[in-house]
Design a protein around this nucleic acid. Sequence first.
DNA 1: ATTCCGTTATGACTTTTATGCATAACGCAT
DNA 2: ATGCGTTATGCATAAAAGTCATAACGGAAT
Lengths: 109, 109
Amino acid sequence: MEIKSKLWIEVNGEPVFGRGRRFLLHAIDTYGSINQAAKEINISYRKAWSYIKAMEERLGIKLVKRQAGGRNGGGAVLTEDAREFLKKYEQMEEGIRETVDEKFKKIFY
Amino acid sequence: MEIKSKLWIEVNGEPVFGRGRRFLLHAIDTYGSINQAAKEINISYRKAWSYIKAMEERLGIKLVKRQAGGRNGGGAVLTEDAREFLKKYEQMEEGIRETVDEKFKKIFY
DNA sequence: ATTCCGTTATGACTTTTATGCATAACGCAT
DNA sequence: ATGCGTTATGCATAAAAGTCATAACGGAAT
């Protein structure tokens, strides 16, 4: 038996950001490619792409600058806005899970 | 833009308890009927029933004593185990949402 | 006994959501 | 021109969630 917690941000009742999307943006930042990033975090490119599309639409912010074609086939990089958002979210998340786990152990064991 | 958080318990990777189920058990305790409880928390009887079934199977604990037929058509009451579990979960949940909301405001505003 | 009532119990269907597949378009480098 | 690995999407399929209809129950009133 284990405790799980989830944290996400909504806009107009629609989810726009959570742990999965955080991993995705992070991986894009690392690998410079949506495709590569998706593989790395074990989701399909299709899904990654849908995530990004939805995030950008709902947030009204451009998060990923993409280029199809060109040297190495193209790629993707995070915008400054994305980096800022990511940073805030990570701060947000930090400590929450630990708090939850602690509480769980204290009560259920 | 708003923050959302969710807390739930899993057994073997399967969810067994969360806020919705907490409301359900609580309502059953109050109304003495799954049917009535479901209406009260705005879910279908079918869903409520599925919840209970899954919880009991996965937890391996009898949570709701039911009777079909009889005076007033029957009804349902929580077992002692259910009450205990509910109590622990509520302790668990207490304070978490507040912590999250606070953190969110501090960072995003 | 028979009927009535509100309940539990489930199967079957429908709708929605998520996932996966196939394919087009891109543009630099060779 | 051709090749390469990428982004970009429509479309089909699968899975999950939700809805609907109906059976069975058993005490109480008739």
